[in-house]
Design a protein around this nucleic acid. Structure first.
Lengths: 326, 326
DNA sequence: TTGAAAGCGTTACCAG
DNA sequence: CTGGTAACGCTTTCAA
């Protein structure tokens, strides 16, 4: 790899001058600039980010912490983040925390060790608000509310209410509400929203608790649900994965969808529109959330003034075929 | 952030000594070591990776280049890679190329600018074997065969053959085989495998070409398929996404699965088992492939001897309910 | 067993 | 307008 020194001697100038043309600051004569450009071209030089980072004490790297990229909701967030940061010239250092505190801490440590300029976290540990606070780094929370940090999230409470309202209006009488993992804040919000709404109605609503969102477990929850509440005629799933699993199980049991049981999911992951019948769901604009989180972080990094540090994106009912028409 | 200097003065020794205990090399007295440890503890010091990287001319970072993390096949690869590299103390710099040469080049540039120790690429541009060859970095290709580089991939040819054989043996007579995007090498392999097998049989097999794997487009391919070949009774989908879309469309058209038409997908993404009927498919061990690619790369980085630089993982028929029993 | 100092590739300050 | 040089935080000779 060519260094700035090589370029300097090739162009017959000092490294200081090369640095000036590189960063486009300070005075540099037209002639000189041209010589330098030629040398750069010729040597196919590109500056060493590590040296830059060392001197400036900040890199062009942003840390992204996710629970588990294998859950189809997160790649969309990640992609949104990535597109936005890379358009702004930043790159992503990625970590999956599995909601495991130690892993999370380890990643945060790597982030600072690598001089990241900021970080985005979509994990759910409130415990280390403390840790985060010592971080001394621009941080934005993604897919999670909080009073203490900049955050972009969707209105889970409203989403939950919307799901419940939809099912009730479409005539469900015995609605099973699935409660997602207790430590997953957004899941609790939507759950609370649903329960709030249902409490104001006359429908029964047994609650079924689940402790994960994984594909492997989803089947189990689905079986348990119909075993425990065989006469349920409406299900508010904790997310689309679970919703699809329930749909699958209902069909396997010979139930008619949406006649016998209506199902509504949460998230609107891409594959939801491909289930059969296509899953009705509450959409969170994941890609957009990722983009906005990144955009917000970048503003923070650039220390722009008057930024809205908490942005709430709207949720939306996507009415497909697991809920009744009209 | 505390630096090595701070630790040194806190411990009353030189930075050289601190460095020695940090890296556990060179002589350092037991007493001294203890003092240093205490200082490190007290200051909560952790070494600056950037400075290290600058001096050593190599970081603890590995570059991972993916086509599009939004395609559910890739998060699994990514996760496999991540788990393996992070267990070995490395971290991931992530890039989505969208199979776009310019983006790919940009990421590769960032990778070298950041002194990555190696990279893993799951993209499909053979054109820049040339670029890669000038890279002077350990590289392993993932989900792609090649003679020129270390690679881990699954046997696409065999997978295609297996899909075709399965459908034929289960009585399909007019099999539509879908051809994935031309530039996606693994898709072509499985396609060729299927065609090879079918050529040796008496069944008809119209070929339908598609140009993408996205969810949005998949629906379109599905509609086109049944519009063009309404009497098809077996479909070899180019991957599970397309397979699920076809399943959806077939059901929408009132076809019975698997009686009227049998469908077989490719990949075995997690959601395939949740379609209804559950999708039969050819499984590629994506997570495992990611892990092995990372393991191979790490061996390369450590310059171990006698390593198997090309590992082919087996594919497997996952017989679910879109193919007939027995 | 320990310390001083050079050097990794940049940037920015100060002279000229 | 340009060049010399200290500094960023670390590792590694080389001497002591």
């Amino acid at each position: 790899m060519a260094t700035i020194k090589d370029v300097a001697s090739e162009a017959g100038v000092s490294v200081a001058t090369v640095s000036r043309v590189l960063n486009d600051n300070g005075y540099v004569g037209a002639e000189t600039r041209k010589k330098v450009m030629t040398a750069i071209e010729k040597l196919n030089y590109s500056p060493n980010e590590v040296a830059r980072s060392l001197y400036k004490r900040e890199s062009r790297l942003i840390g992204l912490l996710l629970p588990d990229i294998t859950n189809p909701y997160f790649p969309q967030l990640a992609r949104g983040v990535e597109d936005e940061v890379s358009e702004a010239g930043f790159r992503l250092l990625l970590g999956n925390s599995d909601e495991n505190i130690q892993k999370e801490l380890d990643y945060i440590q790597t982030f600072v060790q690598n001089n990241v300029v900021g970080m985005i976290s979509a994990t759910n540990h409130v415990e280390h608000d403390q840790l985060y606070s010592e971080l001394n780094l621009p941080l934005v929370l993604l897919d999670r509310t909080t009073d203490n940090y900049p955050a972009v999230y969707a209105d889970g409470r409203k989403g939950g209410r919307l799901a419940a309202k939809t099912l009730v209006e479409k005539g469900a009488k015995r609605i099973t509400v699935m409660k997602g993992p207790a430590h997953v804040k957004p899941a609790q919000d939507r759950f609370r929203g649903a329960v709030e709404y249902l409490s104001g109605t006359d429908v029964d609503f047994p609650v079924m608790s689940t402790t994960s969102f994984s594909f492997e477990d989803a089947k189990g929850w689905a079986e348990e649900l119909f075993a425990t509440y065989p006469d349920t005629d409406g299900v508010i799933a904790s997310n689309d994965i679970v919703g699809i699993a329930i749909l699958h199980e209902a069909l396997r049991l010979g139930k008619k969808i949406p006649e016998d049981v209506q199902i509504i999911g949460y998230d609107d992951i891409p594959q939801s529109s491909l289930s059969y019948p296509a899953l009705s769901t509450i959409r969170q604009p994941a890609y957009e959330m990722g983009r906005q989180a990144a955009a917000l972080l970048i503003k923070l990094i650039k220390k722009e003034k008057d930024i809205e540090t908490t942005v709430q994106l709207p949720v939306e009912l996507i009415q497909r075929n697991t809920t009744r028409k009209g």
